[in-house]
Amino acid sequence: MQQHKVLLLAIASVLLAMVTIQSGASIAKQLFPVIGPEGTTALRVGFSALMLWLVFRPWRHLPKGRNWRAVIVYGLCLGGMNLLFYLAIARIPLGIGVALEFTGPLAVALFSSRRRLDLLWVALALGGILLLLPDMRSVDALDPIGVLFALAAGACWAGYILFGQRAGNLASGGTTVALGMTVAACFLVPIGVFNAGSALLSFEVIPLAIAVAALSSALPYSLEMVALKNLSAQSFSVLMSLEPAIAALAGFILLSELLTFTQWLAILLVMAASLGSTLSTQKKPAAAS
């Protein structure tokens, strides 16, 4: 019974983490008319870095010498992922942005394997992307620049995963995230100041920015740590496959973003590709033993 409760708590933690992340993105999108995506990213990353330093106190385990290289590249990928994603959802619906961005980690999983079954997941993912690509003849066509920003954010997400693994081997997960977020803040905050100026210090903006930082970084990272201690990597990845749908629902509830049937189908194809890739990848070691 106790183990059952722990499992339910872990699953609830993952789901709540995804809800908070997409809720934070929805709030962030409401800041775009005031300070733009660049200013919103700067405040989110800046406040997130402060929160993570207070929680994880990374100054106790700073990398040395060449080890900083992996941390810096990881931080650049982290910052690029955040900025490009916000630039994307300023132009396209939140759920579609997340689905397109999801192609980054999906590509990492698929390129690491050489099995024929993976061709199916590639086909599903490509099918979803093709359905989301802008049809310039349609009045309701997606902004092509927004689509490109989302795909670029996915590429940064792939780099975030690859270099995050290297940087994570140098220190604890919390320390790595705090240092990576600090690197991201070092180049994103000046960009935000340049684009938004004194509007970043508005009394209307600061409370929302703190909420975005907490919902998008501090709280979900803590919840995911709880989950990872009690869930297998496979179970965690399967649950994460729900994120595009949760993002679409958050966009509908908080931003009144309506998606067409085709767009929902595209999101489901990307989710199916992620789910199938996760399950088949995890089964491979078991079959070989």
Rank of each mutant, 00 (worst) to 15 (best):
residue 230 N to P: 00
residue 144 P to E: 09
residue 104 G to R: 14
residue 226 V to R: 12
residue 266 A to S: 04
residue 287 A to P: 12
residue 203 F to C: 07
residue 158 A to L: 12
residue 260 T to Y: 03
residue 221 Y to G: 06
residue 250 A to C: 14
residue 51 M to K: 07
residue 64 K to A: 15
residue 134 P to Q: 05
residue 207 P to W: 05
residue 31 L to C: 15
residue 104 G to T: 10
residue 190 P to W: 00
residue 257 E to C: 03
residue 251 G to Y: 08
residue 127 G to K: 04
residue 213 A to Y: 09
residue 124 L to W: 08
residue 212 V to S: 09
residue 141 A to K: 10
residue 33 P to E: 05
residue 45 V to I: 13
residue 90 A to L: 02
residue 49 A to E: 00
residue 277 S to G: 14
residue 241 S to F: 04
residue 31 L to P: 09
residue 250 A to S: 15
residue 197 G to L: 10
residue 123 A to M: 04
residue 5 K to G: 01
residue 269 L to T: 10
residue 37 P to A: 03
residue 72 I to C: 01
residue 287 A to L: 15
residue 187 F to V: 05
residue 110 L to W: 04
residue 137 R to C: 03
residue 47 F to L: 07
residue 126 L to A: 10
residue 284 K to S: 11
residue 20 T to P: 01
residue 129 I to T: 02
residue 20 T to S: 15
residue 284 K to Q: 14
residue 153 A to Q: 02
residue 71 V to K: 05
residue 21 I to P: 06
residue 29 K to Q: 15
residue 115 R to P: 05
residue 178 A to F: 01
residue 114 R to V: 09
residue 34 V to M: 15
residue 110 L to I: 12
residue 33 P to V: 09
residue 127 G to V: 03
residue 137 R to M: 11
residue 93 P to L: 11
residue 97 G to M: 01
residue 210 I to H: 06
residue 275 L to E: 08
residue 27 I to T: 13
residue 106 L to N: 05
residue 274 S to N: 09
residue 76 L to Q: 03
residue 40 T to Y: 11
residue 207 P to S: 11
residue 136 M to D: 00
residue 255 L to P: 04
residue 256 S to Y: 05
